[in-house]
């Protein structure tokens, strides 16, 4: 564990709490992509199958359980509790275009051709692109509530902090995880446009609005 990874994980936790706070206080999941949230459930379920056979640490165990549980809970809130506040006509990204290629990539690029490893690789590739339906939705509506942008910013910070973590690990432990690194860099890159608007508008007290 190093500071970058710890702060990254904390940013990830923060993003989930921000999202829960947004849904509970506005009693609405307006502006949140159900598809992206569903993809995160799939990401956690496929990545953490090692819960059953690979012990890392108590920290790792508790976080995994939390990510699985909280993502399922968010899905429940969106699907049942606040269902009428979700507008499927805005959430139109075709996730088949993400699932198919990620699965094929996982079959080709994995560390071992066995079920748990292919699922792990699949989850890494899928996480990298799972934000697409959310960003697509943002693009369609052209604006977002401030709290939704804070959620996305925390998610982006989490991904960004994993990059110095890998650099640090390379120099201190000599380990490189090429699958995680390449997918992680792609994933972080997807937030660049968003970050630009977030820093130049939302953090200056303006509304999050995309240029027409």
């Amino acid at each position: 564990m190093n500071l970058f990874r710890l702060l990254g994980d904390l940013a990830h936790l923060a993003s989930i709490f921000i999202l829960l706070h947004k849904i509970q206080t506005t009693r609405s999941c307006r502006g949140i992509s159900f598809k992206t949230q569903a993809l995160y459930v799939l990401v956690f379920l496929t990545r953490y199958v090692d819960l059953f056979f690979h012990w890392v640490s108590l920290y790792n165990f508790v976080m995994k359980i939390f990510f699985i549980a909280s993502s399922c809970y968010i899905l429940y809130l969106m699907k049942y509790r606040f269902r009428p506040t979700h507008d499927p006509s805005l959430d139109t990204f075709k996730i088949e275009y993400l699932l198919g290629p990620c699965f094929v990539l996982a079959l080709i690029f994995n560390y071992h051709f066995e079920l748990a490893e292919v699922l792990w690789a699949f989850s890494i590739y899928l996480e990298a692109v799972a934000i697409f339906p959310q960003l697509f939705m943002l693009q369609r509506t052209g604006e977002a509530e401030a709290i939704t942008t804070h959620y996305l910013a925390a998610l982006g910070v989490y991904r960004a902090l994993y990059i110095p973590n890998w650099i640090y690990r390379y120099f201190t432990e000599g380990v490189v995880d090429p699958i995680a690194v390449v997918a992680g860099i792609v994933q972080t890159g997807l937030y660049l446009d968003f970050f630009y608007v977030y820093f130049t508008k939302v953090l200056q007290g303006q509304k999050f609005e995309l240029p027409a």
Binding site: R5, D50, H54, V56, S57, H112, E117, W120, A180
Partner: peptide, 10 residues
């Protein structure tokens, strides 16, 4: 197994 050793990140 070596590869699972590296899966210590979340």
């Amino acid at each position: 197994k070596d590869s699972s050793r590296s899966h210590d990140e979340l």
